[in-house]
C-alpha cells in the first residue's frame, strides 16, 4: 500500500484507540485528581463493563442496536454501583492512604477477575456492533462503527466536561479536588463526593469498554492494557488535569497507530514506551500539569 493511504489508515486506527483511551483514562484521572489515589482496579472496572455489555446484549437479543444501547445504560450503572460498594466498604476505611489503596485495589482486581472467571468463564465473547456497515475507501475498507466510536467518545467527553463545569455536583467535585478541608468547612459532603467520584470514574471505564467491545471482545483478562495505558495517559497529561488527560490520550493513541507505520511492530512498542518515559523525565509534572506532583 502507498504511504498516503497507509498513513491515513494508521491515523484512523490511532484515533479510535485514542477515543476509547480518553474516556477510560478520564475516569482514572477524576479519581486520581479528586481523591489522590491510584485505583489499580480501574482496568477491572473496564473489563466488568465489557462483560456486562455482553450479558445485556445477549439477554436482549432483539436487534444488536437495542442490546448495545441498553448496555450503554446498564453497564456503567452496574459498574458504578460496584464501585460505590467498594469505596464505602474498603477505601473510605483506609482514609484514602495512597499506599494502602494500591494494595486494596490490587485485592479488588483479583476479586473481580476471579468472580468474572467463575461466572462468565474464560472465553472471549463478541458483542455485535449496533450497525454493521463497512465503508469502502479506494485503498481499503473501514468499519463505520469505529468512526462512530470516535464520535461517541467526543460526545461523552463533552458531557463530562459539562457535568463538571455546569452542575452543582461538578462544582463540589472541583472544590473537593482543590482543597478537601475547606470544602468540608463549606458543608460539602466530602465522603459522598468521594463515593460519587469513584463511581463516576468506574462508570467511565465501563463506558469505554461498552464502546470498544463490538470491536474487541469481552474477556476476563482484558483489563490489563487499559489500566496500563490509562495510567500512563493520566500521568503524562498531568496529575489532576482533565484537559491534559484528554490531550495525552490523543497523543498516545495516535502515536501508537502511526509509529507502527515506520518501525517493526515490537520495536515500535519499545520506542513508544521509552518515549513516554522520557517525556516524564523531561517534564515530571506531565505535559499539562501545572506543578510538580
Amino acid at each position: 500500500m502507498d504511504f498516503g493511504p497507509y498513513f491515513l489508515l494508521a491515523s484512523l486506527e490511532g484515533a479510535v484507540g485514542a477515543a476509547v483511551l480518553a474516556v477510560t483514562a478520564l475516569g482514572l484521572s477524576l479519581v486520581f485528581g479528586v481523591m489522590r489515589i491510584v485505583n489499580v482496579a480501574h482496568g477491572e472496572f473496564f473489563m466488568l463493563g465489557a462483560v456486562i455489555a455482553w450479558w445485556v446484549a445477549s439477554l436482549i437479543g432483539i436487534h444488536p442496536a437495542v442490546g448495545f444501547l441498553a448496555a450503554l445504560v446498564v453497564s456503567p450503572l452496574v459498574v458504578g454501583s460496584v464501585a460505590i460498594l467498594a469505596e464505602r466498604t474498603v477505601l473510605s476505611r483506609l482514609h484514602y492512604d495512597p499506599e494502602a489503596t494500591i494494595v486494596a485495589t490490587i485485592g479488588m482486581l483479583y476479586v473481580i477477575q476471579q468472580a468474572v472467571l467463575m461466572t462468565y468463564g474464560p472465553e472471549a465473547r463478541p458483542v455485535q456492533p449496533p450497525f454493521d456497515f463497512r465503508i469502502q475507501l479506494p485503498w481499503f475498507g473501514y468499519s463505520a462503527y469505529k468512526l462512530f466510536v470516535i464520535l461517541a467518545a467526543v460526545v461523552l467527553l463533552l458531557a463530562v466536561w459539562w457535568g463538571l463545569t455546569r452542575t452543582r455536583l461538578g462544582l463540589m467535585m472541583r472544590a473537593t479536588q482543590i482543597d478537601r478541608e475547606t470544602a468540608r468547612a463549606f458543608a460539602i459532603p466530602v465522603d459522598r463526593v468521594y463515593a460519587g467520584v469513584f463511581a463516576v470514574g468506574a462508570a467511565l471505564a465501563a463506558l469505554g469498554a461498552v464502546l470498544v467491545v463490538p470491536v474487541q471482545q469481552a474477556h476476563y483478562l482484558m483489563g490489563h492494557d487499559p489500566l496500563l495505558l490509562s495510567f500512563i495517559t493520566v500521568i503524562i497529561g498531568g496529575l489532576g488535569s482533565l484537559r491534559g488527560t484528554v490531550l495525552a490520550a490523543v497523543i498516545i493513541g495516535m502515536s501508537d497507530g502511526i509509529i507502527s507505520v515506520f518501525f517493526s511492530p515490537t520495536l515500535a512498542k519499545i520506542i513508544a514506551t521509552l518515549a513516554v518515559a522520557m517525556v516524564l523525565v523531561a517534564r515530571p509534572q506531565g505535559l499539562f500539569g501545572e506543578r510538580a506532583p
Binding site: L9, F140, A268, K269
Partner: peptide, 19 residues
C-alpha cells in the same frame, strides 16, 4: 508480519501485506 505480544488491534498491520 510479526504482531507484538501486547497488541489488541490489528488493522494497522494489514497494509504491510504485499498486494
Amino acid at each position: 508480519i510479526a504482531i507484538p505480544p501486547t497488541e489488541s488491534s490489528f488493522f494497522k498491520y494489514f497494509p504491510k501485506i504485499p498486494s
